[in-house]
Nucleic acid binder design. Sequence first.
DNA 1: CGAACAATTGACCATAATTATCAATCTCAT
DNA 2: ATGAGATTGATAATTATGGTCAATTGTTCG
Lengths: 145, 145
Amino acid sequence: MKSAKDILRRYLKSNGLLYSRQREQVLDIFLKTEKHSTINDLYELVRKKNTKIGLATVYRSMKVICDAGLARETDFGDGARRYEHKYKHQHHHHLVCIKCGRIVEIASPRLEQIQRQLAKKHDFTVSRDTMKMFGICRACKRKSK
Amino acid sequence: MKSAKDILRRYLKSNGLLYSRQREQVLDIFLKTEKHSTINDLYELVRKKNTKIGLATVYRSMKVICDAGLARETDFGDGARRYEHKYKHQHHHHLVCIKCGRIVEIASPRLEQIQRQLAKKHDFTVSRDTMKMFGICRACKRKSK
DNA sequence: CGAACAATTGACCATAATTATCAATCTCAT
DNA sequence: ATGAGATTGATAATTATGGTCAATTGTTCG
Ligand SMILES: [Mn+2]
Ligand SMILES: [Mn+2]
Ligand SMILES: [Zn+2]
Ligand SMILES: [Zn+2]
């Protein structure tokens, strides 16, 4: 199985783009995290390795990393774009606690199946999908009792 | 059945807020549209009735209209918050065409049922949920053949 | 009705995330 | 090693949205 770096390399080459030091550094950092990181999160982390890197470069790198199929943008409705893994990670959805911010990841084959049926019914070719439920998590319910 | 205005009136009163001319004007405009409008869309429309109204007032009015349960925020990933009806409208999800921007609304009891099961399984009390599928609509597929 | 008082408004400024610009630098096929 | 073209970092620009505050308005109560 190909490594994430190989995938990025291949994507870049086949699109006439270059494999720069900065892109590799951003990818390295991104691969290490398992959270839903903002650009700023990643910027702070990558700066520990490369103090000179610019914020815009992190934006641009995550853009190509997404385009290469390695990362996925998510949006939890706070005003900041977040990134999570897409390669070697199961497709999933999110429960978002509006009290504590906790994010629970859920996967459901039955849900996926219904999504496929709905798309087919409307003759829609789906390239990306997202489902989120916002509410109160178990822990927060306990606390408020 | 209560009118939307009655609901807003009641919500405002029970929260110590006032029923202002501007709030009524924004609600009137919002009720007339059946699209997914941005604040700016609504601002342009309401200005035809009240040229003096401020943009911030439209933001603030839509906030209370949402809080009153009459509108719902949606986000299609373009950089602008959108509003749609919540009162006397069935809960639904969206298919978003990334070619032409068309938005198809879908309702699915089976989907809702699975959502409920997933929430229950994780002991999550859901207050708001959203599901979107992005892709290519039927019309756009036809065109590109 | 007509204060009284709190809530709201409109104008404007502040903030924050993201994108555009561009000269200097880097990458990579040759 | 070289050169064409891509990328970078700094910075400015843009955009959506929220905050401030003096002037105005809505509601309650006498
Ligand atoms: Mn996730
Ligand atoms: Mn809708
Ligand atoms: Zn919680
Ligand atoms: Zn389309």
